[in-house]
């Protein structure tokens, strides 16, 4: 039983990471019906920029925690900028010409370019990310929990709650929701919907960058860290539903936990299988996701 709870803890923290990245997919999908297939690379770059910033700040004799906290806004700003670039170069034109698939290739291509840049700047070998908090686990009811795992859960929830509050409370947030509802009608309200879409891309990459600096201290940082995460988070977004805010948290937890359990009780080599089977099942029986509303495509 002890083992089971131990596995659950690591499953939950990884699941929340998937959830945040998937949340990023939702952000752009809701406003533009497109998404950034380079989301994993946005995570990589966020983590690596964070690494450089944290190391620099530690270099000027700041403590690990302070260095981490001060680096966060830098990572966020970088994420916003990176997402904006992706939208400008890869998506805007496709939306304008109503291209069905142009953005898919463009965002994949940009992802590859970003990954190559990361390899060039930070090298190909994984690097240790200085942990902002003690790496000695706490023991809660006999289960070892690392402080960073708790921070992951809290950080992920804070991100999603923050966006939700922005959408509900501020007029700019409402403009984003309006654009997601009906882009033409939002334009008639005087809302510059292309700007809203650019912003949602920025926010989407920011989510990925946050996921990057949240997971980096418990794994390793490197140019290849994001690819698998981005893909699995895509599965989570499909499982949870691209239109349902709650869905990605549940979807992330389902995937994170089944992965960890399979890895422990069955075989690490198969740990991706249950999640992918679930993905196939969802696609067959509930294509809008477990929590998504079924979209009827009007022809």
């Amino acid at each position: 039983m002890q083992n089971f709870f131990q596995i659950l803890v690591s499953g939950i923290s990884v699941g929340m990471i998937y959830g945040v990245i998937a949340f990023g997919y939702q952000l752009t999908f809701s406003t533009s019906k497109t998404l950034n297939f380079g989301q994993g690379e946005a995570l990589t770059l966020g983590a690596l920029v964070g690494l450089t910033a944290v190391n620099f700040l530690i270099g000027v004799s700041l403590g690990n925690l302070w260095a981490y906290l001060i680096a966060l806004p830098v990572v966020f700003a970088f994420g916003m900028l990176q997402g904006t670039v992706v939208e400008w170069l890869g998506v805007r034109q496709a939306i304008r010409t109503k291209s069905e698939a142009g953005w898919i290739m463009a965002t994949i291509a940009l992802g590859i370019i970003f990954k190559n840049m990361a390899e060039h700047i930070w090298g190909k070998d994984p690097i240790k990310f200085p942990s902002p908090v003690s790496e000695n686990p706490l023991t809660i009811f006999g289960v070892n929990v690392r402080l960073m795992e708790i921070i992951i859960v809290l950080g992920a929830l804070a991100m999603m709650l923050g966006v939700e509050l922005f959408n509900r409370r501020s007029i700019y947030g409402k403009a984003v929701v309006a654009t997601a509802n009906d882009r033409d009608a939002a334009g008639l309200m005087g809302i510059n919907t292309s700007q809203v879409i650019t912003f949602s891309y920025g926010l989407s990459s920011l989510s990925a960058a946050l996921a990057g600096v949240l997971i980096a201290p418990i794994t390793l940082t490197g140019a290849n860290m994001g690819a698998a995460l981005g893909l699995k988070a895509f599965a989570v977004a499909i499982i949870g539903g691209l239109s349902s805010g709650l869905g990605v948290v549940v979807g992330g937890l389902i995937l994170g936990i089944t992965e960890s359990l399979t890895g422990f009780y069955f075989d690490t080599g198969y740990k991706d299988v249950p999640g992918l089977i679930l993905l196939l099942l969802v696609l067959s029986f509930k294509p809008a996701g477990l929590f998504g509303k079924t979209a009827i495509k009007k022809v």
């Binding site: 007029i171 409402k174 403009a175 309006a178 509802n181 033409d184 939002a186 008639l188 309200m189 809302i191």
Partner: peptide, 28 residues
């Protein structure tokens, strides 16, 4: 201002929020 064919209200927002969005250029 254009009240379009088919109404095109923002379905997932409240009535008040829909009205506020009508004033978006004024609020911004």
């Amino acid at each position: 201002a254009h009240s379009p064919e088919g109404r095109r209200v923002f379905g997932t927002l409240s009535v008040t929020d829909n009205l506020l969005l009508g004033a978006f250029p004024r609020l911004t």
